[in-house]
Design a protein around this nucleic acid. Structure first.
Lengths: 259, 259
DNA sequence: CGTTCGATTGAGGAAGATCAATTAATGTGG
DNA sequence: CCACATTAATTGATCTTCCTCAATCGAACG
């Protein structure tokens, strides 16, 4: 099993956010709107270059000089960290409304590859122009900082997941996140087209492709997911909450079920 | 062993940055200066509230409304992510020049605890004031964005380490990072006072406290580190490069040593 | 000086990596 | 459109790593 994060037993605290189903839907609509508003703002204030991309297209490479940030309008993208010694790691997946390229600001060159995983559209935003425009339109700064902040939180959640969840739970959590991401963007969350190989998913989650495959098979066997038609790329998720339950179940080392 | 990040064998590329020892020292001095300049800028432009803290002091809690950012002047701090279901995860360690609180910007409240691990000083910076002051002094915006960017990169490196390194290598890499962090801040890098329990280190690295202990014992046995005096809290690092070598060695699954 | 907490070390077991074989999907040229 | 070649996914068997449990040791503190 995993290390169960027992820093201090006394440190535990009641749950932070107690989500009410109704509110969830409400806030989700708000998020959809928020993304649309942000994109409208960027379009109006900066008239960014719009670029159509296809699976495999490179937005930028590690080592490229930093000049632009990019915002996803449609499609989805992976960020791949490259370490000098040959290790490579998918460190993020980005959807509509997400920004690409923040890592480049500090060092003046990009630290990872950004690659399209599907047909889509990215907007190119010159960093200098953005800062200049923000002087007159402070809302630009707000959306920029929110996006950076959100990305930081997301990265930390990933780290927490990798450190505290079993392989099965990670896969379940991954699917849950993906479904949530789609819902927050106004897309259907009951069905997702992964368009990633098992190897890529495994790399992202820090497990092998075989473990991903086994986890998916187990989830299907337990009716938490099912595969759409022939081919096991598209996943049907009848009930997102069931995925969260599965994660919880994998978390508790049997027993403690009653009591 | 771990999953060895073989997304595509053909994808491998020659090492990105080829560090020359001389330049390393030069750029390190530059980093020291950079941090000092940033702190001077913040002091001059914002006259931040300076707060002395001791081990255990809380800078902010998860759930607290977001209003301020904090900059570490001295000491060091941990960031602890709290998940509703009881999992908790050390997601970052912050030293002089690092900022705390970025995660709060997006949602309007902090998403983790920030806790002092030693005596030190943090500067409180009201986010609103910072943005206002940045209108007249653009350098403030630059340092803010660089700090956020750097933090994002760091988070991704952590994720990569957790996903690709063995338990022993993670501990070695952790020590190496710490030593580097001290060097970049003008402190001695041949000796580090952890002031973290094995449990905390393990939590941060996604392994158990026993694995941390065993890894440290192994590193000591192989002369890569040694313990200072009685007590195994302070670690002596005769040669930082040896730590990097140890990480590399753990990376390659035997064989391939020659050829 | 005993108590307590943290660290170390050992033994056993479980999760997951590795190796290998099979099957399914995809692509290619005839 | 089909036979073949190629690549991705699944599943099983084995082995390694690391987690779990437990005992011991050391340091710190009242």
């Amino acid at each position: 099993m995993l290390n169960t994060a027992n820093l201090e037993a006394s440190h535990s605290r009641p749950q932070l956010m107690h989500r009410v189903p109704g509110r969830e839907t409400a806030s989700r609509q708000a998020v959809v709107q928020q993304i649309a508003d942000m994109l409208a703002l960027l379009r109006d204030e900066l008239a960014p270059l719009r670029r159509l991309v296809h699976a495999g297209d490179v937005i930028y490479h590690a080592g490229d000089p930093f000049r632009n940030l990019y915002v996803v309008n449609s499609g989805f993208f992976k960020l791949v960290n490259l370490i000098a010694d040959g290790r490579e790691q998918v460190v993020g997946l980005k959807f509509r409304g997400d920004w690409l390229g923040f890592e480049g600001i500090a060092e003046g060159c990009h630290a990872c590859d950004a690659i399209a995983m599907d047909t889509g559209e990215v907007w190119t935003i010159r960093y200098e122009s953005l800062i200049a425009a923000a002087a007159k339109q402070p809302a630009l700064l707000t959306v920029l900082h929110q996006a950076m902040s959100r990305q930081l939180s997301g990265e930390r959640e990933s780290l927490t997941a990798v450190c505290t969840l079993t392989a099965d739970a990670r896969v379940a959590d991954f699917l849950r996140h993906w479904a949530e991401a789609q819902a927050e963007r106004g897309l259907r969350s009951d069905q997702i087209a992964l368009r990633m190989s098992r190897a890529e998913i495994g790399n992202y989650l820090g497990i092998t492709l075989e473990s991903v495959s086994r986890a998916l098979s187990r989830l299907a066997r337990e009716q938490v997911i099912s595969f759409v038609e022939k081919g096991r790329r598209d996943v049907h998720i009848p009930n997102v909450a069931a995925l969260a339950e599965f994660v919880q179940r994998s978390l508790v080392p049997p027993s403690a079920t009653l009591q």
